[in-house]
Computed example of a mutant assay.
Amino acid sequence: MSDTMTAPHSVRVDLGDRSYDILIGAGLLSKAGDYLKPLVRQPRVFVLTDGSVGGLYAGALETSLRDAGLTMRLKAVSDGEQSKSWQTLGEVLDWLLMEGAGRDDVLVALGGGIVGDLTGLAASLMKRGMTFVQIPTTLLAQVDSSVGGKTAVNAPQGKNLIGAFYQPDLVLADTTVLSTLPERERRAGYAEIVKYALIDDPDFFDWLEVNGERVLALEEDAIAHAVAVSCSAKARIVSEDERESGVRALLNLGHTFGHALEAANGFKSSLLHGEAVGTGMALALRYSVRKGLMNGQDAERASALLEKSGLVTHLNRLPGGPYPADALAEAMKQDKKGRAGRVPLILARGLGRAFIQPDADLSDVRTFLEEEIQQG
């Protein structure tokens, strides 16, 4: 994290007067104060993190802020999905109010997707909106959840059912911090990288077949390229469809199945979001084959890429099971756009040729899931 670090990649999310930059590269945390200072109206920054990330990186962030003439006010929530709750959201808002935070203050998310989602929703609600900055510390957050403004907490009925669209003002994706990420978390984030290739970038899929191991090993050029391509893909889609009324739904490839898997698992740590999405993408592609939309060879090639990274593509081998077809179908009913026994799915006609199927027959999907379980 030296002063001579190479210039970061920059990706613009074009949303008119709410446009913002995603900066990607090694060593950005050490310069966070310089990047945040133009956003600050008072010489202080509020930071929300969790216990694990705070122990690793809150000190470095505080030093960077202090060097820029800013003070840090920090709150750490508990690690894990249980913090994405209505109760924790209330605790965060109480903290901000007690600290005297206002609309002209900056609230920073220092952590993974859970912290980012929670922080963004809190920022959207705090006096009807305060400045919000993402400093994602997991691979999954850097390539997906920190970009695009979808913020939420979970409900007993399902994942991300209480939320809002609220864009950050800046995203700082420091690839150096990924070195402390457990291997399992890296694989979970890698699933979201594969997603962008499967949506509409077959050339990126080819690149991942050759360079995926280098990405997972965090080789600097490979990880920076993978994160930049992923963020560029998401930025382009978000700029076109901020509130998911059309093409943005493509970003849900694997997520309808994945969210159902997480709900059936009770959102426990035995199944990570990226692991569920990896399996969900494989299921979506095999369901596409079953419906005669794509050939089995392409689906097998995608599964092979996921399996090579250590992800699981079959229900019976997925951690945290079993995952009964009825439980998965019941969870899929909670989809925010589902109705009358039908559910939207992202399917594919080939690698990099995903499309939106707005009204898949849930009973047919249940039959498919039963077949998947029987086949093992």
Rank of each mutant, 00 (worst) to 15 (best):
G116D: 06
L369H: 01
R187K: 09
Q157D: 15
G292P: 03
I114V: 15
L36S: 07
S85T: 01
D221T: 14
A348K: 10
F355G: 02
I193Y: 00
P322V: 11
E91C: 03
G246C: 01
A26S: 06
L208S: 04
L97D: 11
A123H: 06
D21H: 01
R353I: 10
I356P: 06
E91A: 09
T119E: 09
D326K: 14
L362H: 04
Y57G: 01
V247T: 14
G148L: 14
P324W: 01
L172C: 07
Q167N: 08
T367S: 12
V106S: 02
V229A: 15
S10M: 13
A235S: 14
G258L: 07
R339Y: 10
R366A: 14
S145F: 05
L110R: 12
P168M: 03
A224C: 14
G158I: 12
L15W: 07
K127P: 02
P319C: 04
R12S: 12
Q42K: 15
L107Y: 00
L251W: 05
G246V: 06
T313P: 12
E307H: 04
R18M: 11
L170Q: 08
D206K: 13
L315F: 12
E213Y: 11
A58F: 07
A32R: 01
G120R: 01
T49V: 02
S269W: 01
F132E: 03
A235V: 11
S145C: 12
T63E: 15
L121H: 05
D34N: 12
A348F: 04
M1Y: 07
L36V: 08
L121T: 08
L61Y: 00
G350A: 11
E62W: 10
L36D: 08
L96R: 08
S146Q: 06
E242C: 07
D206R: 15
L283P: 06
E62R: 13
G254M: 12
L97P: 04
A7S: 06
G33C: 10
V194Y: 03
L181M: 13
G254L: 00
G320K: 10
T367G: 11
I22E: 01
P38M: 00
G80M: 13
H225R: 14
S269T: 14
A191P: 00
V115N: 06
A233G: 15
V143G: 02
K308I: 02
L161N: 14
G149P: 06
Q375E: 11
Y190S: 05
W95G: 04
A302K: 03
A141C: 08
P38D: 03
V106C: 05
R41V: 13
G55R: 02
M1D: 11
F165M: 11
I114M: 10
G292S: 04
E99D: 12
L110G: 09
S146R: 09
R186S: 09
I162P: 03
H314R: 15
A32C: 07
K84N: 04
G55M: 01
D144E: 01
Y287S: 03
S19M: 07
A155N: 09
L251Y: 05
G112P: 03
L347C: 07
R290P: 02
D364T: 14
